[in-house]
Design a protein around this nucleic acid. Sequence first.
DNA 1: ATGAAAGCGCTAACAA
DNA 2: TTGTTAGCGCTTTCAT
Lengths: 333, 333
Amino acid sequence: MVTLKQLAKELGVSISTVSKALNNSEEIGEETVKRVKQLAEQYNYTPNKVALSLKQSKTKTIGVIIPNILNRFLAKVLFGIEREANKHGYNIITCISNESLEKEKEALKLLANGSVDGFVLSVAEETQVNNEIAHFKNTINQGLPIVMFDRVAHDVMCDKVIVDDFDATYNATKSLLNENRIRIAFISDINGLSVGKLRERGYNKAMLESRCEPLVLAVKKKDDHQKKIKAFFKKNRNIDGVIAADSSSGIIALNTAINMGLKVPKDVSVIAFASKSDSYHTLPKLTTIRQHAKIIGAQAAQMLIRRLQNPSVIEDVKTKIVKTSLVKNKSTL
Amino acid sequence: MVTLKQLAKELGVSISTVSKALNNSEEIGEETVKRVKQLAEQYNYTPNKVALSLKQSKTKTIGVIIPNILNRFLAKVLFGIEREANKHGYNIITCISNESLEKEKEALKLLANGSVDGFVLSVAEETQVNNEIAHFKNTINQGLPIVMFDRVAHDVMCDKVIVDDFDATYNATKSLLNENRIRIAFISDINGLSVGKLRERGYNKAMLESRCEPLVLAVKKKDDHQKKIKAFFKKNRNIDGVIAADSSSGIIALNTAINMGLKVPKDVSVIAFASKSDSYHTLPKLTTIRQHAKIIGAQAAQMLIRRLQNPSVIEDVKTKIVKTSLVKNKSTL
DNA sequence: ATGAAAGCGCTAACAA
DNA sequence: TTGTTAGCGCTTTCAT
């Protein structure tokens, strides 16, 4: 890498002259500016990012902590964050907590040493279960703002971007009830998460309002989803609707129903939290609750960057709700 | 953030004493070391990463450029890279090229300004189509090593980690031929990629060896996969086997076959490049070609880190092949 | 219009 | 055993 020093030497001027010339300072003579820029161009000079960061004590880098990159929703949010960050000249440095509290703490600590200007993160499962929040508060107190998305810690004062999980399942369940379904099951493999609980509650509310009895299957990560769901269907022969809190459960439920000789949507309707491409993984195509992951990511990044660029203004923390949409396909009437 | 300066001041010693004490230098008195460490602990001191990077002209950060984070395979590789990097004290800074040559160039340039010590990347589709490699060569000439994985540019001299794509489909096709299938189709939505082509060639070779006529369906990203595949099945009624170059095509092919009243695997066998969790998205469970994405990521990271840590040794570039495995499930005989 | 110098936080060679 | 100093690459204030 070429440095200002080398350019200065070759041009026979001082370092500061070169710096000013490249930054279009008024102080420098037209002729000099031209010479400097030309040589810089020739040598393909770019300012050293690290030196810049040190000097200006900001890195233009956002730390992103994701619980699980294999989760399609989270991957999509990451995509949204990256794109938005890039648009504003920020890079992202990614850590994967793997749903572990310990790794989350580590990542936070590791990056809070000057590597990043702030964080966008979704809380790890273990963290939510143990309700740990000290590490978040610490980080914020160190002057590093955090924006949480999807899985948030409500007791931490920071900006948040969430989904209307409760309303989403409430409305989805309602829509099945309107199809005159009465034995609607709720299947979820994210029962430990805040969002999983909200989704279940929305479902419950709708069911109880219509005097239908809730019927819930909580699948665990280590279970064989297919077996569990098949057994569940066998035990509850009269199921005529399914609300799935995650895409896998939804896809498997639909395919299992068909495998058991049921007609979808004639005998059973299925709705799942899932993405567009997931909906192609079943025949008939799956009716989905879309979370607009990319928008969530973009919003979160935006909130963080705003805060970074107006550090003086002590804004109140905000919580944005990105509404889901129910996209009807052929797995419902 | 506390700095050495502040600690030094409070302790009434010089900055270098503090630095040495914290780095367990032999030079410093036992008593002093204790005092320094205690105060550092109390103030939760961590060395400023940026200053360290500047001083040592290495960042302990790896730049990762991924064409598409929503691709499950690539996401999994990213996971492997991150974990391996972390193990060796490296962070990763992620850019998503979104299959665009321009973004790939940009990312490379942006991070080559001192932000990272080297790159792990998979080549964007557009880059492969246009066969552009100058930006890679530039980066390497600047002294930043690159390790490519999966989609590699063969004409660039650098370490590579690839999959035995050709053999994988050759063997998979053979295994269907051994089931006495004779009308085996190849379905792919990655026809533009180097790996897609290799997969097709492996299939072709096996078919021709058995004097069977190849039958290929190339789906485009923007197509409605379900429609395309259904039409394909209708046009070629006698298909008795499918090799899919990507998981989506495989899942959709299997589900479509069932939807059309065919029995899987009795009438049609299906094999696809896909992950374990994908195999649960069909009933019967999908027979898959596994790429061991995490291992690929870990290997790539390892190769880069090795090179970074032995900069003097000019090793020859290496290409590692991570073998796929054919995991038989219920979609084949 | 140009340059010298200080300083961001850290390490390390050298001096005391 | 401890401190001084230089320097990593850059910006910026203050001379000149």
